[in-house]
């Protein structure tokens, strides 16, 4: 019975986190874009516009969810839930603070990369079932995109796995107690980090790799026909996905909830320890999220063939060589 209660509490917390993260991230995106575009952004609803996304959610809730004629009704309605469930499953192994992890699975990062491949299914489903040519083209694009970028994302994760010698997320974090991998690992880890950021930006369909929805080409791509709450679910899943991949980035390269320590500066290190571990975790994650948003509001979009060229001609060969380098570093113990 206690186990059951635990399940219920964990589930409720997850859903709550989901909703809050969605609201916060959408607001953050709008504010970041506004300041980069010399605008003010939302500033009417609530203090400094803080309740704007809540108002938008209420609007989306009250809107009619249309299903276009000729659509495969069952699959059309299923797609947003697949997107949502896939994302929700990803929350399980993420440690939000020291010892605050829902499920310390021994194959943590492998689990993440496995379950995140569900996202592509939801996009393919949505694109196909909408009976819309834009959606179909968007789905085709994102299929090709996600399947290829999973490779280099996986390889850059493997780089850290090689250094740590474990797939478990808690082990990976524990291995960074004396310094984050981004500082300990020299150039190869930096290369892995850059590849990782590029690959996950592509995997989450964010600009400059937002070809699946490319608004100037395909109006809205795979979710052209979605409206109301069904659209909101896609939207939410996209933002939570960003949070999750950034959390993984923070765990792999920035030590998750590990505070920042410098060698033997005992005083400094102690001060750093006073900052709660959850602050460290969310700080790092949100920094990475900001970087990804920064990309979006700076760069033009790539074309589909350039996108695949980038992966197959640049990222994949580089990260393959990089894995070899990392192995060398790990075997010879060159890292600190």
């Amino acid at each position: 019975m206690a186990l059951f209660l635990e399940f219920v509490i964990a589930g409720l917390l997850c859903i709550g986190l989901f909703a809050i993260l969605g609201l916060v991230l959408v607001l953050m995106e709008r504010k970041v874009s506004a300041y980069m575009q010399i605008r003010l952004g939302p500033n009417r609803v609530g203090p400094k516009g803080a309740l704007q996304t809540l108002a938008d959610t209420l609007k989306l809730l009250s809107k009619e969810g249309l299903t276009p004629r000729g659509a495969d009704r069952f699959l059309f309605n299923l797609a947003p839930f697949v997107a949502m469930i896939g994302t929700m499953l990803l929350l399980a192994p993420i440690p939000f603070a020291k010892g605050f992890q829902l499920w310390d699975i021994n194959i943590g990062v492998l689990y993440i990369s496995a379950v995140s491949s569900l996202a592509v299914i939801s996009i393919l489903l949505a694109g196909w079932a909408s009976n819309n040519k834009y959606s179909l083209l968007g789905a085709m694009r994102s299929g090709a995109q996600i399947v290829s970028y999973e490779l280099s994302a996986g390889l850059s994760i493997i780089a850290i796995v090689v250094l740590t010698g474990s797939l478990s997320i808690s082990d990976i974090i524990a291995s960074q107690a004396d310094g984050w991998w981004i500082f300990k690992g020299h150039l190869p880890v930096w290369i892995a980090f850059v590849t990782f950021i590029i690959a996950v930006t592509a995997e989450t369909n964010r600009a400059p790799f937002d070809l699946a929805e490319a608004e100037s080409e395909l109006t809205a791509g795979f979710h052209t026909e979605y409206s109301g709450m069904k659209f909101a679910l896609f939207f939410l899943a996209e933002y939570i996905n960003i949070f999750i991949v950034c959390a993984i980035g923070a765990i792999l390269f920035f030590g998750g909830w590990m505070p920042f320590h410098i060698g033997n500066w005992e005083g400094f290190n102690r001060i750093m320890d006073y900052i709660p571990s959850s602050v460290w975790f969310f700080g790092k994650t949100f920094f990475l999220i900001f970087v990804i948003m920064w990309f979006r509001w700076t760069f033009p979009r790539l074309r589909i063939d350039q996108l695949l060229n980038l992966e197959w001609k640049y990222l994949l060969p580089i990260s393959m060589v990089n894995v070899l380098l990392i192995t060398l570093v790990a075997i010879l113990g060159w890292h600190f």
């Binding site: 874009s33 980069m36 575009q37 010399i38 605008r39 600009a207 400059p208 937002d210 490319a214 100037s216 509001w297 700076t298 760069f299 033009p300 979009r301």
Partner: peptide
Amino acid sequence: LAMDVGAITPFFHAFR
């Protein structure tokens, strides 16, 4: 043009 190829920010800078 920048917006057509996917960069939205230049549009606002242009309007300034």
